[in-house]
Design a binder for these strands. Structure first.
Lengths: 159, 159
DNA sequence: GTTATTGCAAATTATTTGCACTTGG
DNA sequence: CCAAGTGCAAATAATTTGCAATAAC
């Protein structure tokens, strides 16, 4: 993947520097097959060098986002994950609200839907940022029937 | 709307108490025509009584969510908004990434899309929680051509 | 009266920032 | 060499929690 070299090129072009920290973060992101939280990324970064600070990870992720090499996906509950942009094929994210898994999905079926939104509401949807909440196959299998709603921790039992 | 009475009923049924604070929060939510942040809700609550604490607002919103009277919508960037559930007609949220406006949209056009997801990935989408990022009509008019991407604050100019 | 609920203040969590020191170009 | 970048520690911001006082039922 030319992602690394593209990054270096962009860095130099804009007068940024190529530091080992930035290389580590980028290579970690390459290893990841699924989106990862800052926490997860930071852990793996530390396996390379425990001197790297988490603030540097944040800063590098910001930079990578500016370069459109990385996107962040907001899973709610202040759970943000990052992943390398799939330059060839952008896709949606199916976010399982039960197990937290994020699955990539073909963007095409959403396109006619997006067209409808544009037509009816003048709203230009950005499908590459679209996260679809719901329940994945595994979790559905496990709990074929169950309340989708909140599983909260309130004191009083119902009736 | 029977929402108030439903709430009271549910409270009593489960041994919760009907407090003025809870009534205020609920009535504020009724006044809101669009989803509101905790901050906004809190401000309006204080107009009624500045003795009400923000933690009580949080707690009440949690409770209302447990009762499925309120849903929270995550707009990313740790911007959460709350709104009363539209019992009759659930709808999607079109979230303008430019001005932050949230517009309700008909859920039907999304249904065939959801069916595809179920078929292809076994993923059961929860359309009532679906937020669609993009750009609303107004913002599109204003900046007919513009970079959708990040408008960041990095030092070095390109080239 | 008893127990849920509140206000308050302190704790938590995720992220950002100021700054002196370090280092890449 | 010298500005960009880093580590660190402190600052923010949003939300949660422990607890004694209060109020609903």
């Amino acid at each position: 993947m030319s992602c690394e070299s593209y990054f270096m090129e962009q860095l130099q072009k804009r007068g940024f520097r190529l530091t080992p920290q930035r290389e580590i973060v980028l290579s970690i992101l390459h290893q990841m097959d699924s989106p990862a939280s800052v926490e997860e990324i930071f852990e793996r970064v530390q396996a390379f060098s425990n001197a790297v600070d988490i603030s540097t990870v944040y800063r590098t992720l910001d930079l990578l986002q500016d370069f459109n090499l990385v996107i962040s996906v907001d899973l709610g509950e202040s759970h943000r994950v990052f992943k390398l942009v799939d330059a060839e094929e952008p896709h949606l994210h199916l976010v399982c609200e039960h197990c937290g898994t994020v699955t990539g999905a073909d963007i095409h079926p959403a396109e006619s839907f997006a067209a409808t939104l544009l037509e009816k509401y003048g709203f230009q949807a950005d499908l590459t940022r679209l996260n679809i909440p719901g329940m994945c196959e595994n979790c559905r299998d496990q709990k074929t029937h169950s309340v989708t709603g909140s599983v909260h921790k309130h004191p009083a039992p119902l009736d």
